[in-house]
Nucleic acid binder design. Sequence first.
RNA 1: GGCGCUAUCGUCUAGGGGACUAGGACGGGGCCCUCUCAAGGCCCAAACACGGGUUCGAAUCCCGUUAGCGCUACCA
Length: 474
Amino acid sequence: MTTTPRVRFAPSPTGYLHVGGARTALFNWLFARKTGGVFVLRIEDTDKERSTDAHTKVILDGLTWLGIGWDEGPVFQGASVARHQADAERLLSLGKAYRCFCTKEELDAQRADAERHKQGFRYDGRCGRLSPAQAEANVKAGKPCVIRLRMPQEELAWDDAVHGRITFQGHDLDDFVILRSDRTPIYNLAVVSDDIDMRITHVIRGDDHVSNTPKQIALYRAFGKAEPVFAHVPMILGADGKKLSKRHGATAVGDYQAQGILPAAMRNFLALLGWSPGGDREVLAEADMIEAFSLERIQSKPAVFDTAKLEWMNGQYLSALSADALLPEVTRELTAMGVTTGARDLRPVIDAVKARSRLITDIAKQAAVRVDPSKAEQDDKGRQLVAKMGASFTGNLALAADALRSVAPADWTAAKLTDPLKALAASKGLKLGDVMQPIRVALTGSTVSEPVNELLAVVGREAALAQIARVAGT
RNA sequence: GGCGCUAUCGUCUAGGGGACUAGGACGGGGCCCUCUCAAGGCCCAAACACGGGUUCGAAUCCCGUUAGCGCUACCA
């Protein structure tokens, strides 16, 4: 029989949910959904200095926002230190690990010395050669000690699901610490102990962990347990080719949420960073993404995070979504902007404006002006624009105002507003743009908007006429 | 320094020995549409890092060079 795949995403709550972490979570989730497996969320909070509940909440919220749900957890690693300690003790009694009495100072000195000679530092294993009697005496004497794993002098290799065969040699690695002198576990021990305990079958994580993998394999062997399948997904880089960091601007999932990115667009974009379904497909529904997903199709080279493509992707989702579907997001953004819309139905406004928007915030900004056109002149940009519109601006605007005033309220629709303006232009020998553009500027404070007939309809007769009159100075 | 990973248009990628005059998308440029800007449609520029092999044949396989990245803690 085949066992159900079990995967985990294991962030440490020492910062916000980074887009790289989000993508790792996404790949784990996609794999679980594809294979009918279980996705476990584990919070690695063994670093008590830097871990906070606030960070944990941000990570959970970020995953939820992205629609990445977990089947088990969150389980907190800190709750299992007793097991971690017991596992370390077990390795000790098996002779697979030993007590090391070297002090931090001694080790630092050795490290500095190695540095000076341009040599890589590796612990020489001297405490591993202590006789049991000596070690016992040190313990009796109350000397503090850590526990180190005895690194096997053998090949430590695995078939990585994304990279293929990766090989390390035990003699290139040192006897690393698994339990601190205060008896708290070190990362590699905690991870292996937990992954065994949770019966994790596939470890899908960032490339920055490949050098931890041989150490963890050594641990699995010491415990006499079969190792899981490892899949190391490539790093995400900034535009300059360096590892993505704060220096590059927004790196937290929350930043993109605040910028007006839709969760589905973010998820689609992230999925395409280092993975592709093959062929030319890019905008993928959730079900198609799951269907096409496989570890083998993950790219083995790092990918640059391209915000221009993210925004394009968002635009794709925006235009595919109905005004109905967008309404809650836009309303939320408007509220955040301090704009009150009262009982007004925003859906026609959203429809009018969304084709020119790539972000929710773009829609909200335009909607705010459609709802209250007087905003067009409330900022300097709008005023300056009117000021430099040229000599014919006010005159043409006044002509347009006359023509529009004679449009009956019942005829104030996008379909019926174009003709009166065309007739006006024809009768005065003006180009259509000469009458359209002044209206656009007066109503939006911008030279860019939806077609003027639609704009007028969306703003409404009373508000539009009032605003035009105000700008024309009549 | 050591160990490891990686290398197709500026970016994300397709490609897994002949289907490749190397395809798509973003971004850039142009045209059409048009009251502006988008959207949409059409078109253009743009890449197999380098050098050796293997093979009748290599973007695809092997080796080397170069470059980039990661790790090298009683952090995770």
